[in-house]
Amino acid sequence: MASLIDCPHCGKRPREEFTTLGSAVTRPSPSADSETWTDYVYLRDNPRGMHDEFWHHADGCRRWIVVSRNTFTHEFGGTRDAAGIAPMISPTEKTSQK
């Protein structure tokens, strides 16, 4: 994962077609306190390992997707549409090349 991204809508596409926004954190409720908002906007888990991130298929279907990947090995862990309308693609479901 870093050369090809498995878009849940378009399949494997070159990484150049995508942009990324970092951690797939969920926006707090409007009534959340300021600490929660500061957390959301500024603090990050930043793990060395599996990480869920927002990616945008900017030069493709224009959908925002959540990509799970390992930040150390770049191993692919699955993708889904950010709005949850496309089924999760997990690496185990990948079929043979033929």
Binding site: T19, L21, R27, F54, H56, A58, R62, R63, W64, D81, A82, A83, G84, I85
Partner: peptide
């Protein structure tokens, strides 16, 4: 445009 898509698709689908 990307921001609007993000807001719509992620925050307020």
């Amino acid at each position: 445009l990307a921001h609007m898509e993000f807001c719509h698709q992620q925050h307020w689908p």
